[in-house]
Every structure is written in C-alpha cells, then in structure tokens.
Amino acid sequence: PKTFTVRIVTMDAEMEFNCEMKWKGKDLFDLVCRTLGLRETWFFGLQYTIKDTVAWLKMDKKVLDHDVSKEEPVTFHFLAKFYPENAEEELVQEITQHLFFLQVKKQILDEKVYCPPEASVLLASYAVQAKYGDYDPSVHKRGFLAQEELLPKRVINLYQMTPEMWEERITAWYAEHRGRARDEAEMEYLKIAQDLEMYGVNYFTIRNKKGTELLLGVDALGLHIYDPENRLTPKISFPWNEIRNISYSDKEFTIKPLDKKIDVFKFNSSKLRVNKLILQLCIGNHDLFMRRRKADSLEVQQMKAQARE
C-alpha cells in the first residue's frame, strides 16, 4: 500500500514511521503507543499546530484528512492531552509517569505553569535525584549541575544568587532524597507539581458578551473563568457535576449550569476552530472524570496488580 513518512516527537525521543495513506488517527496513535510500550493511552494524543493554534489528531478521521502540512515527514507531537486528578493513584506504568514528569517539568521551566521559588527548588532536587541517583559528594562535585536547566528563569532573576549558590540550595534538598529510585523521584515531583494552580489547565482567551477579555480554563475538574491578569485563581468555576450542557455555534460558546437559578454563561472565542478544541477537551476531561467515579476497568485492575508485583 502507498505510504507517507510521519515523524513523531515524544518528550524524549523522535521516531519515524511509514503511515499508510488510508490510516485513521487511531491506527497511527496505536502504532506509536505499541512502539513506546504505553498502555495508559487515554491521557495522550498526537498534537500538531495549524496557524498558531494547537490541534489534536482525531482518532476516527483519516490522518491525511486533517489540516496538517502535507510536507514529509508530517510531524506530530506525542503529548499528554488530559491530566490525572491524582498522579499517584492514576498513573500506573513507569513510562506513563515518566512522560508526564518530562512534560510537566518542561511546562514549569518554560513558565507555562507558575511555580513559587521554594517549590521550584524542591522540584529541581527531585529532578536531580531522578537523573543522577543518590547524592555522592565524591562523584557530584562542585559545578556538577552547571549545565543543567533546573529552575524557571523568573525564579533565578528574583534573587541575587550565583549559580554556585543555587547548586548548593538544590543539592541540600537532593541529599535528602537518598534511596529514591528514578520512578519514585519522578512521582514525588508530580505529586508536588499537581498542586500548582496552573497544572493541567488549558487556557483560552475569550470575550464575554460585554466584550471584556477573559480566560477560559479547561481541566480535569471542570471549566473555569479567569481574569487575564490572574491565571491562578478563577473568578468563577463550573465543576463538571454542576453543568447540564455545553455547546457552540460558530464563535459563540455556551455553558448551561444544572441549577436553573444560575445564569447561562456565554462567551466568544477567537475562532470556530478554538471552540471545537474546547468542546473536544471538555468531552475528554469529563469522560475521565466519570470513569474515575466508576470502578477501574479490568485492564486498569490488571495493570495495577502488575505494578504492585
């Protein structure tokens, strides 16, 4: 059969595949998951960018029917699209935890997720434990972290501290993590990171009916409305179990609360494409929200049993 080349970029690797012309998103996605040995597939997706807007490959649509650049290799980023409510309970396989760790670490270092200075240092110390193993002063000599990107630039700029002083601060914590295996250190990292306000939130710029610019956040727990100046604390939240219906028509998006006494919330997003993405993220997040509130599927039960062994 006729094929074309796709390049898949994960958080720590790049792979190329020959993709058949007739393949649907799911065929390619499954191949990538099989190649990675990843079974907790429901958190992930294949991301591409179209006109500066993020988009995700649809499972039931042909790969080539997507609005992707047809120049080969066609490139997709294999990334977490949905986040667990509780990493320790939900992320079972080591590979799943590792991919989340890398993705969240990048978001924090790139300042996509705000992290206060003290927490940044603690997170850095777990990242160092994950990479270097137990602290050994005879091996980890002064300057051993000089080439590592460990802290957000904002945090570094906040203090009059030399790189040596930062290394000392991080190493003091690092030495405390003795005995933690890589996967444990990465899980400790995620347990701290998941409590950061911006963790796992997809932000979209919207305008309310008065034309005021606001932010919409979509996450594991529901929809949130923010002042653009404050991405940390929502002005209004709509938890999934308090929403009756969500819909869009062109650029307009409507959230209908369950409680009829609460006003319907309507806003406009910049593009129809953005509304489609918002709805997709809502459906996926709500689906996981519901699944968490049912018993584990047989597959997850088996994986948890395996992980315990």
Binding site: W240, R244, N245, L272
Partner: peptide
C-alpha cells in the same frame, strides 16, 4: 465539504448514561 459550525455535549446526559 462543509465545516460543521455547531457542536454540543450533554454533560448531564453523559453522566446519566454512565452504568452504575
């Protein structure tokens, strides 16, 4: 082809469809 310009998701309905 026509782009679909509307979409809807019944959050409550999905919850009710959920097997106990």
């Amino acid at each position: 082809w026509h782009r679909r310009r509307t979409g809807t998701y019944g959050v409550l309905a999905a919850w009710r469809r959920l097997p106990r």
